[in-house]
Amino acid sequence: MPSEESLVRRAQNNDQEAFAQLYEEHFDKIYRYLALRVGNEMEVEDMTQQVFLNALRSISSFRWRGVPFSAWLYRIAHNQAVDHLRKKRKRASVPLDESLISSGDSPHSTTELKMDVEQLLQATRRLTEAQREVISLRFSSELSIARVARIMDKSEGAVKALQHSAIVALRRTMLVTEQ
């Protein structure tokens, strides 16, 4: 299994297979990250594709300075999400998308999880930008604290604190919703 660094170097030299491998490795995670940030399925799909097309266009500008490739990719996704949400904020709020599908297998669990997705999307809107970012990266994309810290350009301690405060806030919102 080639290292991420060697894959990126090959991709920068126009090696299509290397870039295709990076794409496969990160596609679902970027999708999940955007799903929790943006919420609307169609928009999430468009933006996920755009992240990789932007990455393809600007891969030559990526430099290894101790920052992993995924951090760069999430930075592109983050910028797109922020830009998108800024534009969207000017318009009336759009209802949450019910078509986002959770990966639960049985019809029963799908129904339950779907409710949870909606609840979660609604709850994350009450978080601060940084808290939402931590939740998306940590639990949707399943990244380690160290990696999240690099992506967000924060210390690991700061990320842990954000994670804690975000979970407390989500807990509070969920309890209120249940009542």
Binding site: F27, D28, I101, S102, V117, Q119, H164, M174
Partner: peptide, 19 residues
């Protein structure tokens, strides 16, 4: 306990898959 329970719910709920 309540925080970890919340995390489990969040984690499960956020496991969306692209079509």
């Amino acid at each position: 306990k309540p925080l970890l329970e919340t995390v489990l719910v969040v984690k499960e709920a956020s496991a969306v898959e692209p079509r």
